[in-house]
Amino acid sequence: MNHIVCIAYVPDTETKIKVAGDGLSIDETDVKWIVSPYDEYALEGALKAKEAGGGTVTAVTFGPARADAGLRECLARGADEAVRVASDGLGQVDSFGVATLLAAAIKTLPHDVVWMGNKGVGTDAQVLVPMLGELLDLPHANLVTKMDWTGAGATVRREIEGAQEIVELPTPFVVGATKGLNEPRYASLKGIMAAKKKTIAVKTPADLGVDAAKISGDAASVRWTKLDLPPARQAVKLIPADDPAAAATELLRLLRDEAKVL
């Protein structure tokens, strides 16, 4: 089976976020970039499936040149090939635009399973998995924590509010991984060396037959208009704890009378 893994290359979750001068994007100085944590579960799922059943694993990202480092990381862990859809020079692209470009890239590759993360850390939109299912005309399941291969495809478990759903997916399909699916491996030294020798295929939207003018800049259907930092929280009100019973009583009183949440 041939596996595609879509990865987003995003600011490390520890990174301090500062707004850039344009008031729309983040200040990238000092930002450390990582493969989005959920996408690591997706990659691991694909690598395990390949080890068990053969085939290839291709990592795909949409991003600027710096995202090549994220693809190298995937190659070092065991992906066979990597494709970057270049975002250079495009204005804002919304989730539909990203999905359009990724779908166009995936259509040029053999794909039985398209692996993704349940959400891309940073934009946190949680919409690309279903969008890719739709644009590739494939069934999908998101928030997957367990996967059992069957003859025809996979039976997966997904976490929903207050319950678990068991979903049957015939191949080909799109799957969104979340924590619990597996434990992502680290790259081996051998893998890192091998990854250095591999080439990353870089495609422009035009290479993929997508008219960038129709999905970016003024044509984007959803736009960011202002990025800012959330208002600072008020300083904490500390309740002395010398007498636990008195402290607890005072806390509950505040929750009821002042915060009005009880």
Binding site: V19, V222, R223, W224, P230
Partner: peptide, 8 residues
């Protein structure tokens, strides 16, 4: 961070 979003 938080972002203001709008539909075009």
């Amino acid at each position: 961070a938080r972002v203001a979003v709008t539909a075009s």
